[in-house]
């Protein structure tokens, strides 16, 4: 933990070489979260880059470097939410894109070896993101609550519902849950 905080502080100081390390450390979990939410690796690349730009621009104002992880995922979540808002606002072009993503997803589902990740794609966004943050990113409950902007109790109930939905989905697909 001290190592991660140290990296953030070095970036806030303006040590340019620390940025490369920060991105190398946090890009994989950030990308995995975005990928889990949008379903397409190309879209995930674009959104992750957008999120990183926002992170770099906001970093000098981050007052608690030890809270970097929840702050990072909050920004990523906002980036994904902006995309979803645009998707609903411009139904025609966005639906085309969504169909493409879905098609890629179905193909990906055939090739995937990780049952959980395959199951995630079938869950609604709220349930999907809480599972990604808690189980795949290993964020503590309080940090999940901070990222999602809801009380910890809501995170617990959402997690409970998400696990049940995932279990049902995997059972339908013939996996042992």
């Amino acid at each position: 933990m001290a190592g991660e905080e140290l990296l953030v502080v070095r970036c806030q100081l303006g040590e340019r070489e620390a940025f490369r390390e920060l991105v190398a450390t946090w890009h994989p979990p950030l990308w995995r979260y975005v990928r889990g939410m949008v379903g397409s690796p190309h879209l995930a690349d674009d959104l992750a880059q957008e999120a990183w730009v926002a992170v770099v621009r906001g970093l000098p104002r981050l007052r608690q470097p030890e809270r970097f992880a929840p702050w990072l995922f909050t920004i990523a979540r906002r980036t994904v939410a902006d995309l979803l808002r645009q998707t609903y606002r411009a139904p025609e072009t966005a639906m085309e894109e969504a169909r493409t993503v879905l098609a890629e997803d179905e193909l990906g589902g055939v090739l995937t070896t990780m049952q959980i990740e395959a199951g995630l794609a079938a869950l609604p966004p709220l349930e999907r993101e809480v599972l990604i943050l808690f189980h795949l990113e290993d964020l503590p409950l309080a940090s999940c609550a901070e990222v999602l902007g809801v009380p910890a109790g809501t995170v617990k109930s959402r997690l409970h519902r998400a696990r049940r939905m995932l279990r049902n989905h995997l059972a339908e697909k013939g996996y042992e849950a």
Binding site: P41, H42, D45, L111, M114
Partner: peptide
Amino acid sequence: MSEQDRAGQRAVPEQL
């Protein structure tokens, strides 16, 4: 998981 997914998780893209 596709090749693109694995690549995405592994490295920071040059463009980024």
